[in-house]
Every structure is written in structure tokens, then in C-alpha cells.
Amino acid sequence: MPELTYRDALKSTLVQEMDRDPRVLLMGEDIGVYGGTFLVTEGLLARYGPKRVIDTPISEAGFIGCGIGMAMLGLRPVIEVMTWNFSLVAADQIIQNAAKIRYFSGGQAGVPMVIRGPNGAGVQLSAQHSQALESLYGYFPGLFVAAPATPADARGLLRTAIRGSDPVIFLENASLYGLRGEVPDEEYTVPFGQAAVARHGRDVTLVTHGRTLHMTLAAAAQLAAGGVESDVIDLRTLRPLDMATVVESVRRTHRAVVIEDQGGLYGVAGEVMAGIYERAFDDLDAPVVRVSGEDVPMPYARTLEVLAQPNEAKIMEAVRRTVA
């Protein structure tokens, strides 16, 4: 199996899907001539031309809304947001139009569209460029929310997203683009709503998604050295949310910690915890604990930024409390 970076997995999948289906087109700020802020679309303008690789002005509500109209007419736009923070400018388009058109048209029109880009913090980007938005978009029926943590899932989930019939919020992370991993050669898809078990263990269930998977796995390895074996579940998509896999694991381990980048209030971890309490309360030997980002706007100073985010030590501390 070839090893690819997360970035190359995304790019090569875009190429494969654009070669396969002429209806797939790309649109976004500086994705063409510039090659994409994180170089995911580098070289694609030369390959497909300006009609299919559209450089847009800084105008999220405009071009995301245009993507919705294109999708309604049968194209399959894959739109890059430079960061998900900027999607808030287009929240009305995404939430009020993309998510709801199929429903209020009584199924007459659909919006097969992907919006992708980095979510959450980078390094010292401060408050307006560091927000993790999965719980915001996870709230709205009509949207799918995917958050691949590995190059293999980046390809499999992106392919599912592009070939689907509904709008997909596709959450990447700046720290993941350089990550290397094995990516199968064959034309596979990763279905939505199917979590992956990234590590098997009997003592505690660790549930996470996206960037925090990797610190969770590192924490699990350290905990194993101390004799605590973790089941690590990577949710992969947040809507649909695969609670069945989580609950099945908790029934075996009787303990759970949920890890996320975003702040804890009204978040994904809270939703997962509620699901565990609703479906597996009697199986629990300890309260479920969450490790979230701190409940503050992201600070600039590197020391404060590190404090504001989850890390290995915080995860290990939470697990120790749970298994004590």
C-alpha cells in the first residue's frame, strides 16, 4: 500500500473524481493560480482549466451560495473554505439554503455539494482563525459532517462526500495536511456513520475525531505501558453519528472518556456522553468524562494557546480519574 500525506490523499482523490465525473468542479479563494492556501489544489488549474477550477474573490456567501445553485442544477461543486472560520460569513447560505432546500421543496431539488477546509486551531492564529465548528454544523438536519483523521479516511470520506446527493461539511485540520499514512490503491469509499476502532482495549473507551485522534492514540500507548488498555474510537463522521459502535464498546469497557478540540459546552463530546447515558447507563462503572478545549476564545500567545487545547497529559489524567 502506498504511503501518502493527508494533503496528497485529498488532492489525488479530487483528481480521480474530476477525471471520473465532468460535473465535479472546484471553487474557492486562491485555489487556482495560487494553488490553495494549504496547497491541496496545487496544479489542478493547469490540469482542468478555469471553468472547473474557479478562483473566487473573497466572498464566501457569494461563492458558497453559487455552489448551491450549481448543485441544484446537477453539478457537484467541491468548495474550499480557506478556513472554516470564514464559513460563518456564509452561514445563511449553508444553513438556510443548502441544508433545507431538499426538505422545503418536498424533495424536488437537492444540493450535492462538498465544502472542505481546515477546522480548528493552527499555530498562533488567535481567536478569529482557530474556531472548531463541528457542533455548529452538526446541529442542522440536511447536512452531513465528516472529519477524517487519517490520509486513508480523507480519501474514502471525500469520495463518499463527492458522490453523495447532499451537502457535506468536510472538516480538515492544518496540522493534518503533512501527516503520512497508508492509503489503499483500490477505489474504495468510507461510508458515513461508521466509526473506526483505531485501537482495541478492554479497560476504557476513548471517543474522538479529527486531529485529536492522534494525541488520543499517543495517550493510549502510554496508558498501556501502565497497564490500562484503551478502546479508541474515531467517529469519522459527526452527522450521522455512529453511537452504536460507541455503545458496543462502552458495554465491554464500562468506562468512557470523550475528547474534542472545541469547547465543552453544547459540543460533540456532550452529545456522545448523552448517547452513552441514554443507551448504556447501567453498563457504566464510572461517570463519563470529557476532555475539551477550554471555554475561552483562542488566545494568541503560544503558551496560552497550548493551555487552551486538549493534549496527551489532559487525556491521561482524565482516563486515570475514570479508571480509579
Binding site: R102, G142, S165, R239, P240
Partner: peptide, 11 residues
Amino acid sequence: DVYGDERQRER
């Protein structure tokens, strides 16, 4: 009519 593929609804 929430999703095009109704099987994709939350499990």
C-alpha cells in the same frame, strides 16, 4: 426529504 439517501440518516 431530509437527505437524498434516506439510509444515511442517523443510526
